[in-house]
């Protein structure tokens, strides 16, 4: 009896110990508005289907966004985004894989705001580029929210913007990712 008890304890210890290190979410928000006039939301889009994983022990993070989950105000623009700009049939996902810098697992146990950063590789439209950006981590009530504002230059990722549209848009599109992990 004692043996079995021990085994159970050891098993559960092994499981919980490892499990606590990895958090996952399936409803990360990624928003962008490339308009020069930020009040104009014509070309802006939002995805609520970002999937992300955080491995606490190694500070590793990964994010995957199905490109078709970006929805626009204008149905026609959404079609163009998928068909002509991002070719989402061929390149279905935008991804990021990297490390959090300045992150410590003790941050997750104490409510507050922490300024950290992240470094890694981002893949978009079939092209992978180095990525580096500050990240704001907010821990409150058992939820860790990572916020990151970063620019993406369409030309860097081989995304062709028609000359007709270009004057209305910024050279670099500001993106905003908000990823929340529930920790219990």
């Amino acid at each position: 009896m004692k043996k079995i008890f021990l085994i159970i304890i050891l098993f559960s210890a092994a499981f919980t110990g490892l499990q606590a290190q990895t958090y996952k979410t399936r409803d990360g928000n990624i928003y962008f508005n490339p308009n020069k006039n930020q009040g104009n939301k014509e070309y802006s889009a939002l995805s609520k289907e970002g999937t992300a994983v955080l491995k606490v022990e190694t500070s590793e993070v990964a994010l995957l966004v199905p490109m078709k989950s970006f929805h626009f105000n204008n149905a026609l623009l959404e079609e163009h985004f998928n068909e002509n700009y991002l070719h989402t049939n061929k390149y279905p996902n935008g991804t990021y894989k990297g490390k959090l810098i300045g992150f410590d697992k003790s941050m997750l146990t104490k409510d507050g705001e922490y300024k950290i950063s992240s470094e890694g590789k981002m893949e978009l439209h079939g092209i992978t580029k180095d990525f580096k950006s500050p990240v704001l981590l907010t821990v409150k009530g058992g939820v860790a929210t990572f916020k990151c504002d970063f620019p993406v230059k369409a030309a860097d990722y081989n995304i062709e913007i028609p000359d007709l549209v270009k004057p209305k848009l910024m050279e670099s599109t500001p993106l905003n990712a908000t990823i929340s992990f529930k920790m219990n």
Binding site: E49, A52, A62, L63, L64, K68, S69, P92, T95
Partner: peptide, 10 residues
């Protein structure tokens, strides 16, 4: 790992 999951699909 993420890619192999269902959530990788829209």
């Amino acid at each position: 790992d993420l890619k192999s999951e269902d959530s990788a699909k829209v």
